[in-house]
Amino acid sequence: MSDSILRNTGRSGPRRFVGMLVADKLACAAALFLLLVFLCAVFGPALLGDAVTGTNLRARNAPPFSLDRGWLFLLGGDALGRPLLARIVVAAQNTIIIAASAVAVSLLIGSTLGLIAGYAGKWTGEVIMRLADVIMSFPSLLLAVIVLYVLAPSVANLVIVLAITRIPIYLRTTRAEVLEVRERMFVQAATVMGASSTRIMFRHIVPVILPTLLTIATLDFAFVMLAESALSFLGIGIQPPEITWGLMVSQGRQYLTTAWWLAFWPGLAIILTTMSLNLLSSWMRVALNPTQRWRLEIGGKTNG
C-alpha cells in the first residue's frame, strides 16, 4: 500500500489530479456535465442562434419528446414556437458569463483586500473589515433588487451588483487565512531574511491560501447563478431579447398548468449545474488539501 502511494505522489501534477477525479465517480460525472455546459456556452450561440430567434406559431407550446418538427424540439417548444433545447443551450452562455464574471471580480477584489487587512497594520485591517460589515449589513438579494431597480437591468450591472454582494465572503476568508499563515515558520524565516511584504504575500502566503479560495469560488459560482436566476425570475435581471435560464423559468411560470415543460427544463438545467458545482467543490476541498489528498489516492488505487 505504501509503495503505491509513493508511486502516485511521484506522478506529474495534472495527471495525478485527473486520476483522482476519474476514481471519484460522482465528481467525475459532475466535471463532465460542467464541461458539457461550458461547451454549450462557447459554441451554442454560433450553432443554434438562428433557431432561437425564429418563431413558429404552429409549434407553440409543443410537447416534449415529439420529433415531428425535428430534433431541436426534443424538449418541446415555447410560447412562440421556439425550440426549448436550442434556447437552453444558447442561454447557457449568458448564465455562465454572468456567474463567472461576478465570481472572478469578487474573488480578485475580496482576496486583495483580505491580504491587505491580514498582513497590514491593525488600523488598516479594521477599516477594511468595517467596509465588509457595511456590505454584509444589507441582504444581498435586497441590495441587488434596489440597485437593479434604479439602474437599467443589463449584463454589466448584474455582474457588478452580484460581485459587490460576494466580496465580503472572500475578504473575511482571506484575512482569517493570512492571520494564521503569517505566524508559520517559513513566513517568519522569509521576514528574517529580509524579504519584502509584497514578496511574502504573493510568493509565500497566496500559494497556501489559494486552494481554499478556489474551493469557495467553485461553491460560490453556484450561489451566484441561483441569485441571477432569482433576479431574472423577479423580472429585474436579464431582459429579452437576451436570455438566461432564470429568465426562461420566469417566462414559463404562467404556463405551469398547461405547459409545464417551459419552466421545468431550464429549472432542471439550473439544478443539475448547481449540484455538479457542489459535488466538484467537495472533491476539490479534499484534492487541494495536501493533508487529506491521500484519501483520494488510496481510494482510487483500491477501486482500480
Rank of each mutant, 00 (worst) to 15 (best):
L80F: 15
I205M: 10
R16D: 05
T215V: 15
V249Y: 14
P63A: 15
L57M: 15
L115V: 04
M248D: 12
Q93N: 06
L131F: 09
T198C: 04
V127L: 13
S281Q: 02
L6S: 15
D24R: 05
V103H: 12
T274H: 02
L32E: 10
T302V: 14
F186P: 01
G194T: 12
A99L: 06
G110P: 13
W245E: 03
R82V: 03
T95D: 13
W71L: 14
A31C: 07
S66L: 11
M284V: 07
L214I: 14
V105K: 05
N56M: 14
T124N: 01
L84T: 01
V286E: 11
V90M: 10
L35E: 13
G235M: 12
T257I: 10
A263H: 12
F73D: 01
W260A: 11
T9K: 15
G246R: 14
V105H: 04
R15D: 05
C28H: 11
T165V: 13
T95K: 01
L219S: 04
S106T: 07
L151Q: 13
P241D: 11
A230K: 01
A91D: 15
L35D: 07
M193E: 08
I88D: 13
G304Q: 11
V150L: 14
L247F: 06
M20K: 03
P168M: 03
M248A: 13
